[in-house]
Computed example of a mutant assay.
Amino acid sequence: MTPALPYLDLADPGFSTRSPEVLAARDRGWCAQTPYGLAVLRYREVGKILRDRRFRQGSHNWPEIVGIKGRFADFWRHSVIGQEGEAHGRMRALAVPALSKEYVLSLAPVFLEAARELCAQLRKTDHAEFQSAFSDPFTGKVIAALLALEEDEWPGAARDASELGLAMGITARQYEDRCNAACERLFDLAERLVGRVRSGRDRDSYVARMVAEFDRNGDCSHEELLNTIVISIFGGVDTTRALLGLGLSLFIENPAQWRALRRDAGLIPAAVEEFIRARPTTTWATREATEDVEMNGTVIQRGTVLHLLVHSSARDPEICDDPRFDITKPRKRHFGFGGGAHHCIGHFVARTDLAAALTALRETFETVSYDGEPEWMPDSGNTGAIRLPIRYEVAR
């Protein structure tokens, strides 16, 4: 590894993957050294690595990197994210058919109804803490629709999924006990949900569809089935919850873009994608070299972990001539949902429920601004708002 590479301290809680230091490192070259391996900064190289079979999914060892042990670490290593080859294919075969485009679109009216119900409450005032007033309950209601949860069950499931999200940040170690306890509860919930399907009380949910795939294929173990349900709950809640707050903050800081969205609902799909380019919740996708690989004169040694930075690659001047947040501008595809064999299973769910949320919010807020200082998780690893106080004018 050449010592001439720039260094980025991704482990520093004050560091941002959107910082001037990252942009300066990208100007110098395609990668940089970090405490966690290499950061890949440019669009072309990120795309190549995601397609190259000499790199496996790299975040299987995230618990070891951040120093956490226990139930969450075991779950993560054995999840569809942590597996490769045949095991990965078996588990993915449970979830992908169960989340068909037709099935997800059938739930879109339910997602929109949930968003509008929450916005009806927002209309009763002119200020709120957005995460607790909208993001948390909306993502809980989405996962309830997917899993056919009872009304009193989804708050706990949503809370536990958000707790797991703490394990994916660079400060994960301080939350180890909370993450392990939440993981245990989610596995208990998954067991109960499978029991409902087996007893005939659930025939239509995402879990029912996964159990049908499980019975049809017969390749996965019961533990793999439960694991896939838990990773689906985790991803379904944490991604949407975080992106809603991150996205709204972008509109607050760019009010002309909110006015554009208010004028044209057709911009909603573009807005969802621009959220991920401009303020990704998963700030990097991860791969690990399974053999020595030479790229652009740098030898990437076997076992090296590479962190493919989403914002840096999406704003690479080679493919993006204007780095500002702009939902009206055509953009190249981003890598916020990864790519290749490990492309995010739930990407269409996330896009669909985020679109429903934006539909309701643009109907509700004429203008929106901060009402105090937001509180954010570190801007490396997985990020999002802890608190997002807002003030707004209600649309008439």
Rank of each mutant, 00 (worst) to 15 (best):
E191G: 10
E223V: 15
L189W: 02
G338Q: 07
A24R: 15
G340Q: 01
R92P: 10
L10A: 04
E363Y: 01
R277P: 03
Y370M: 14
V272S: 00
E150T: 09
D379Q: 09
D292Y: 04
H222M: 15
W284D: 06
A167D: 06
D326S: 14
W62P: 05
L246P: 01
N296R: 14
S232K: 07
G169C: 07
G297T: 11
H334Y: 14
P374V: 02
G339W: 02
D27P: 03
V96W: 00
I268F: 06
Y370L: 04
W76P: 03
E213Y: 08
F348N: 02
L149T: 11
R302N: 08
Y206Q: 09
R196K: 12
E102M: 15
A285Q: 09
V394H: 09
T17M: 07
S312K: 13
I231E: 09
P323G: 08
E184Q: 11
H60E: 15
E191Y: 15
M210N: 01
E45N: 03
Q131G: 14
N217Y: 15
A158K: 12
C220A: 12
D152H: 13
T171E: 15
E150M: 10
W62E: 04
F337T: 01
R387I: 03
E373T: 12
I81R: 04
R53E: 08
A395Y: 08
A108D: 10
V349H: 01
L50K: 05
E163C: 06
R28K: 14
A4Q: 15
M1K: 10
V310I: 11
